[in-house]
Write a protein that binds this DNA or RNA. Sequence first.
DNA 1: GCTCTTTTTTTCGAGCCTCGAAAAAAAGAA
DNA 2: TTCTTTTTTTCGAGGCTCGAAAAAAAGAGC
Lengths: 415, 415
Amino acid sequence: MVGGIRHYEMRKRNRALVISAVRKAGQCSRTQIARLTDLSQSTISAIASDLLDEKIMRQAGQGEATPARRGRPQVAIELNPEAASAVCVYLSFNNLSAALVDYCGRVIERQDTRLSTLDVGQRELMDLAASTIRSLIGNRDNVLRVVLAVQGITDSDGHELLWSPITPHNHVPFGPALEEIFGLPVIVQNDCNMIAAALRWHDPQRYGDNFAAILLSDGIGMGLMLNGRLFTGTHSSGGEFGHMIHEPNGALCRCGRQGCIEAYAGTYAIWRKAHGRSPMEEPVADTEPEHMGALARCARSGDERALEAFNEAGQAIGFGIGSLFALVDPAPIVIVGQGTTAMDILEPAIRRALARTAGGQDAVDIPIETEREEIPLVQHGCAMTALTGIDNDIFGPAQRAETNAARSVTRKSVA
Amino acid sequence: MVGGIRHYEMRKRNRALVISAVRKAGQCSRTQIARLTDLSQSTISAIASDLLDEKIMRQAGQGEATPARRGRPQVAIELNPEAASAVCVYLSFNNLSAALVDYCGRVIERQDTRLSTLDVGQRELMDLAASTIRSLIGNRDNVLRVVLAVQGITDSDGHELLWSPITPHNHVPFGPALEEIFGLPVIVQNDCNMIAAALRWHDPQRYGDNFAAILLSDGIGMGLMLNGRLFTGTHSSGGEFGHMIHEPNGALCRCGRQGCIEAYAGTYAIWRKAHGRSPMEEPVADTEPEHMGALARCARSGDERALEAFNEAGQAIGFGIGSLFALVDPAPIVIVGQGTTAMDILEPAIRRALARTAGGQDAVDIPIETEREEIPLVQHGCAMTALTGIDNDIFGPAQRAETNAARSVTRKSVA
DNA sequence: GCTCTTTTTTTCGAGCCTCGAAAAAAAGAA
DNA sequence: TTCTTTTTTTCGAGGCTCGAAAAAAAGAGC
């Protein structure tokens, strides 16, 4: 049962709606907000004046074009960058990149650390995250949220890292541990979900309510946007596209099972195949981007084994997308990351396989986009996740908790 | 953009919440409703008295136990069965079952028709549906909705039947055509989704916010409940579990492609395999339930080929569930329909395969339930879909459209 | 430079809705 | 018959949105 709705909720949602409209538009006059939100002028006036009073928004310096029209000029308001800030951390293989962003999403400070993720203890891993966050926070008092993206499987509540290829430890409780230290909400998220979130912010035209972002690197990850929402599993972050079954009882996967898509399309799998190794050989721990580039060049210049390896990878991905499309059809598809450097070889194989599936009946029409760099996307996704979280959970509810309390106290003491 | 919330919406949702609470509970006093909805006594009092005035609810004849406690006795209210009614139609292979249900979901009248769905023209198919609905409606004026469940793929808006194994016609526009005739909202839905909806109403304890219902008959269908909502594709009804790929380039499926799960686990596939036919042989049009029962008995009494056929089917289903669980983990699983008669043979094979997938890591723990009869489930699902639709869309919005109009007219004419 | 027109923003009163407290209602208990 | 207990209704207060009117802030015209 959802529970009833009161005035408080109504105001909260309308406030959040206004904030969201301004966040999307960048700058916005009250009249425009009214049009965007379908609320009346008077309501917008009231909400906007509250938000300005609370310093969540501020009047925008009249930027560029004042088209010199007749009538009272619109005064644009915008998010106040100092209203809040958030820390975004991305933990991936041998790398920790963190950033402090202001309330508008602009990066204030950045910090990158190399480490050997496979060799580091669970304690150290969490300590490293904590010290990075601490140094970014410094003595700021307006940091309201931390978002930690990790390569791997997280729980659906955003508390823990359940399993990851980058560390031998399971159930790493980043969320609770860091919340304890900093007294802030900490959200742990799968990196591919953050990529999907970022893409939607970058280009809402192309990446609208439905699309899938597939990250091709060591492992295969996926972020799925369905009906305008990030799709997550019921217990875990879900969307483990790389571990759908491609060949029952097939090649050995890094996860220890057999026949996963990743066991054909992960960089280690391509490397294994191209070097003529057995599909049951233990995956190598790390494949350098340069090696993969070289392999792609081999394939292009006619090396049969290399070509075959990429074809097999493309086939696995294509059939996988086909199975995914049988369940839900999230066109377009975006391929992200290192794997995109070989897209000229992969894409034909993907489309060939896709065309042979029920889900991919109109395979020709399915747009497949590419994005080379995943790290900036992950960070931007974290930032927007943190900030919209602040919008909805903190700035949405009217900031009158104290005022209200004060008022009722006043009333009582007067009476 | 969702658009802002006004008082009207607030009341609408709270009314819908009250109706939903009463629908779930059967009978309910105002005090209980207040507790269930977390709204105040006064609000419930107001809403309840409106709903009674509008004859959407009625006072319940004090059913059984009046536990003779002190104090003013609770007066229970319940849905007024005559507030509305709905027509539910289920079109499946060679069969059309329809029912008229009252606002409480009780069947008032039923009508079943046998036909040869494969041989009937598109026009005739729609005419048959229309005449069945017409005869059920009779001269009632409180029929507010029609829900048509079909075996096959429907569009996500619930307007059309896009593709179905039971008819050669594609894009059959049941929705618009019937709406045109009867002037009522008509919703076209996939049968497995209706099964999932029904199971949730039947046993919300067991089938809660997350579960998957898999229908094993000629084809393989699935209804997926995720986070308390029926999962549908973005363009089509989605959840075409049967057409996820089991073996790339594998056995011939009824859909014309190769290697779909259905091509191993549909009754025609089991029949084909058990009779030693080639996996590329054209699927037979129809397999009688009796044949399948006989086949299962053969397998039980040691017929190798039959046993192998069922094992292969179980394996396809198991790996499919594993792939599904990689994306999302909707435990428990319910197997529905004819296929359940062979569950003693299928289940071990399913679990063996499932255990070999990443998604099914805890395969032992995943509960697999069975439900033999699908038709009653589909009909009940249609009924609840129709009725909750009426609750939300028609009875939720305050019934004061005319009153308001009248009022404002009065005011104006007075002024 | 002053007035007129146009557009945006704020203000104000009305109406709707929820809530808490008090009153009313409807029983059993004494 | 009166007291106690529990449910339901009533009533006034407060919060929120809305439409209409007023105020504000420009350019246009002379």
